[in-house]
């Protein structure tokens, strides 16, 4: 195990660095004025509905402090729900209630909490504790996503999501993110979740990493990653690719989930997708990005773009 990698090797592999990502991709292809579309999950959701892209159903919206009381009544009718800050980042501030028992709410971690704690969480969200700049925020209440049986062995508490990097409408790299005990049920790589690189052409697992190191099986469930193959891969790529028309952002990370009943859904978009996906795929992003950048006639239809990627050698 070596502690660093040579500069030449990094270049040869086509690894995208933080500076290059910020200058050559994010600030070049993502218009600043479009950022609110993806930074605010509510806006993303409404936009997706307009473009008939599946998203988790919106159960409620809390904008002001006094609405928390009204939500108390409503919450009794719901068995399960998820509370999210509209402008949260990196999975912060998400509260998952999987069921209710005797007036108590059961979190995904099986802990019981009272409505007072939910109310406090909502207050924190409204005050902007989880939002990007600490600005005032809104809380979204969504239906709970039911884990697809395919992934049941690969996840600790949370629902796995699939991150696809879409550059100018072409999906270029994908990764499956699995929550672990270390990540506290969250699917965030820097919190200790596992990232499984997924072949962009076929949806088959390539390689998995946790905390920047290669792993072969899930640390909690011990399931091997080797035989993961995501069903309906083409459909997922289509959803991801259509997010380009939806937002006009040139370089985005599209987060998708697979629901047991409703299939593929758009969870959220990210205008500053992280670089760890390269480690999970054991592959640099740069070569692929360059290739897309050099396509002279960009395909206008989602289907053709996806086919271009699938059929590319």
């Amino acid at each position: 195990m070596s502690f660093y990698i040579g500069l030449g090797r990094l270049k040869k592999e086509g690894i995208l660095g933080m500076n290059r990502r910020n200058i050559d991709f994010i600030s070049k292809y993502n218009k600043r004025s479009l950022f609110p579309l993806v930074d605010n999950k509510l806006q993303t959701k409404l936009l997706a509905q307009k473009h008939s892209i599946n998203t988790p159903k919106l159960l409620g919206l809390i904008k002001y402090q006094h609405q928390i009381k009204d939500f108390k009544k409503k919450s009794l009718e719901l068995n399960s729900f998820v509370i999210k800050p509209a402008r949260g980042s990196g999975g912060k501030g998400i509260l998952v209630i999987s069921e209710q028992r005797d007036g108590k709410f059961i979190k995904s971690s099986k802990d019981e909490i009272s409505f007072e704690e939910i109310s406090r969480h909502l207050t924190n969200i409204l005050a902007g504790l989880y939002s990007l700049n600490g600005d005032q925020d809104e809380a979204i209440v969504e239906e709970l996503i039911l884990i697809d049986p395919l992934f049941e062995n690969y996840s600790y508490q949370g629902v796995p999501d699939i991150r696809i990097i879409v550059f100018k409408g072409y999906p270029v790299m994908a990764m499956l993110r699995l929550s672990t005990k270390d990540s506290d049920g969250k699917a965030n790589l820097h919190q200790g979740a596992v990232g499984v690189g997924i072949g962009i052409r076929d949806g088959v697992a390539i390689n998995a990493v946790k905390d920047g190191k290669r792993v072969n099986f899930h640390p909690d469930t011990k399931a091997s990653f080797e035989d993961i193959a995501i069903p309906n891969w083409r459909e997922l790529l289509m959803i991801a690719s259509s997010c380009y028309e939806m937002t006009n952002l040139g370089y985005i990370g599209v987060d998708l989930v697979l629901d047991k009943n409703r299939g593929a859904m758009l969870l959220e978009l990210n205008a500053r997708p992280g670089l760890a996906i390269q480690i999970a795929n054991s592959k640099g992003l740069l070569h692929q990005l360059k290739r897309v950048e050099n396509i002279e006639l960009k395909e206008s239809s989602v289907e053709k773009r996806v086919d271009f990627i699938i059929n590319a050698s």
């Binding site: 070596s2 660093y4 933080m18 500076n19 190191k213």
Partner: peptide, 19 residues
């Protein structure tokens, strides 16, 4: 601000590629 090269600590971050 225009430097697009790698950061020094990225040499460590992507060390898994060496294998």
């Amino acid at each position: 601000g225009r430097y697009t090269g790698y950061r020094l600590l990225e040499l460590r971050r992507f060390r898994e590629f060496k294998i």
